[in-house]
Design a protein around this nucleic acid. Structure first.
Length: 288
DNA sequence: CTGCAGGGGTAAA
DNA sequence: TTTACCCCTGCA
């Protein structure tokens, strides 16, 4: 646990707003100077951009270079992927132009599972509030620059939390889902370590779907946004349904468009990079 | 001020 | 395939 700093020079595809506001994460907050501050695993970090350089500093459990390389997916060539996707059609070209600084973070699997269970039928401010209260109550405190931060609680730290306590934190009907999923993971009815090593995406998806509160959309978000990192999945929420219908399917009544139809269309068009394509389209439709 | 729809779905009927 | 579900916000 020590303060560390790193400067990443000339990084491509690294815009703070695109990365932190594209819907993949819930614990990063914009500061007055335009930088973003967040907690991930046992680390507290501030990320700032000056020109083409990214400056990251904070309290890091392990070596900052390794930690940052892994978390921000720095070894992947996003320019190459974007070039290939942009060739598909004008819609992709346009949405990539809008969200060109997106990177898909390698977020802790456990944290991603719980966070996206909380996200179900919920809005971002409330999701963030719930996660902060959960971390403050059950996570580990880290102090940096006289400010207190809290790590996301581990499954072990949530072991004895009751459904009522979750309800009091404002989880609503998701209380029982969090309780049951934590139990299933602690008892290894679903083994996260095995899951992390399994290359078969469909098998991993089946495993995730066993968890309480994890349906198709949440499972795909976990597959895409966690260290599982499966770029071939295509999470479909109301925004993705909307944008896919508007740009490609063009059905009068949006609610008539089936998930199967959207999935098929995505697989045909975007193939192995459906997940990233989804992210550009989603971000553009919601923010632009 | 009160009422009500709707929000990054899921589970149960 | 349809419906209820917690809580918060925006708007009539």
């Amino acid at each position: 646990m020590k303060e560390q700093k790193i400067i990443l020079e000339n990084v491509d595809s690294f815009e703070l707003r695109d990365i932190f506001e594209c819907g993949q994460c819930f614990r990063w907050n914009k500061q007055e100077d335009g930088s973003y501050e967040g907690v991930f695993k046992q680390n507290v970090a501030n990320v700032k951009k000056e020109g083409k350089n990214v400056i990251i500093k904070g309290i890091f459990k392990e070596d900052i270079k390794k930690t940052v390389e892994e978390y921000f997916d720095l070894k992947r060539d996003y320019n190459k992927i974007k070039q290939d996707l942009a060739k598909i059609d004008e819609n992709m070209k346009m949405s990539i132009e809008y969200g060109k600084g997106i990177r898909i973070l390698n977020q802790d699997l456990w944290e991603t599972i719980i966070s996206f269970i909380i996200s179900a039928n919920n809005n971002i401010p409330r999701i963030k509030g719930i996660i902060e209260r959960l971390s403050k109550k059950y996570g580990e405190k880290i102090t940096w620059n006289n400010k207190d931060y809290y790590t996301f609680p581990t499954a072990e730290e949530l072991k004895d939390v009751t459904v009522e306590e979750y309800r009091n934190l404002g989880l609503g009907f998701r209380d029982i889902r969090l309780y049951e999923t934590t139990k299933m993971i602690l008892e290894k009815q679903v083994d996260l370590n095995k899951m992390q090593k399994n290359p078969n995406t469909l098998e991993v998806r089946e495993e995730l779907l066993k968890l309480s509160g994890v349906g198709p959309k949440v499972a795909d978000c976990i597959l895409l946004f966690s260290t599982l990192k499966r770029f071939e999945v295509f999470p479909i929420d109301v925004w993705v349904r909307r944008v896919m219908n508007e740009l490609y399917i063009k059905e009068k009544d949006e609610t008539k468009v089936s998930k199967k139809q959207i999935e098929k269309m995505a697989q045909e068009k975007f193939g192995d990079f459906s997940g990233l394509a989804q992210q550009y389209l989603f971000y553009w439709r919601r923010e632009a």
